[in-house]
Design a protein around this nucleic acid. Structure first.
Length: 249
DNA sequence: GATAAGTGATCGCTTACGTCA
DNA sequence: CTTGACGTAAGCGATCACTTA
């Protein structure tokens, strides 16, 4: 009996229950089904539903090499295993569906591991950044001392000295400018990385953080986008003109 | 005995393809 | 030759029914 024929029979006989035992009995009456094993002798045909270990083994083997059977091969397999072609087709359908859902579970596990890995990297980078910030502050303090001394000793030499620009040498100027940027970019005086992290990784405390790292087009907001998201991409800020540390400032 | 997981089968729907007017 | 209606086969996701641990 073909798939649709069977369904037609079912539809044209609404009162007749063809699933379960009765269907199994119909199958058993057909030529292919003679080898469908009786697993136990207790409950009659209900136990005929399970395929034998050998049948399962063969089907599994087939599935490993090809998850979809060609019609001719399906007939061949059905004949070899003593099953209805429809039974083989259904077995492959179920197998595909259940393999797919297991694959989804596996993928989820992998993503979860990736996330944990990324989170720990974030933590260590955060610590590294905090250390650098402290270092920068110390350097800044060191720079301010001679500047103040200069103010005391040589007032009036430069009109801009009261604006904190007394140090004019190239190297000192560079340091000064970079410090200004760093203070601005890193938020030296209000370091809220923990909030950033919780937000960035989807924790509850800070609901607005995604906007801090998402591109202008908002392309990092859907779950699909997170699949292609990794730590390498996180630090690839070359197109934006910002430095890598700016993203969490 | 209750329960969860596994499994074969069913249902309803969609899609692809062939046939025919 | 093209086109739309129709039938058929096959696949899929969701679900049922039953077994087993």
């Amino acid at each position: 009996m073909k798939d649709k024929d069977f369904q037609k029979v079912k539809k044209s006989n609404p009162g007749k229950v063809l699933d379960g035992e009765e269907y199994t009995q119909e199958i058993m009456a057909e030529p292919f089904s003679s080898l469908t094993e009786v697993v136990t002798t207790k409950k009659k045909s209900k136990n005929k539903r399970r395929f034998s270990d050998e049948q399962i083994k063969s089907l599994e083997l087939m599935f490993e090499s090809e998850s979809r059977l060609e019609p001719r091969k399906k007939l061949q397999v059905a004949r070899d295993l003593g099953l209805q072609p429809r039974q083989v087709a259904i077995w492959f359908q179920n197998k595909r569906a259940r393999w797919k859902s297991k694959q989804l579970e596996r993928d989820y596990g992998i993503l979860q591991a990736d996330y944990k890995n990324l989170a720990s990297k974030f933590d260590s980078l955060k610590k590294e950044k905090q250390a650098l910030v402290i270092q920068l502050q110390k350097l800044n303090d060191l720079l301010k001392k001679p500047k103040e001394e200069g103010q005391r000793c040589g007032q009036g030499i430069d009109g801009d000295s009261d604006k904190g620009e007394a140090v004019k040498s190239d190297s000192e100027g560079q340091v000064s400018l970079s410090m200004e940027r760093s203070e601005h970019a890193l938020g030296v005086l209000s370091d809220d990385d923990s909030a950033i992290k919780t937000d960035y990784f989807g924790l509850e405390e800070e609901p607005n953080l995604i906007s801090m790292v998402e591109p202008a087009d908002g392309s990092l907001t859907s779950p699909e986008d997170w699949r292609s998201f990794d730590s390498a991409g996180l630090f690839d800020q070359s197109s934006s003109g910002y430095q890598w540390w700016d993203f969490w400032s």
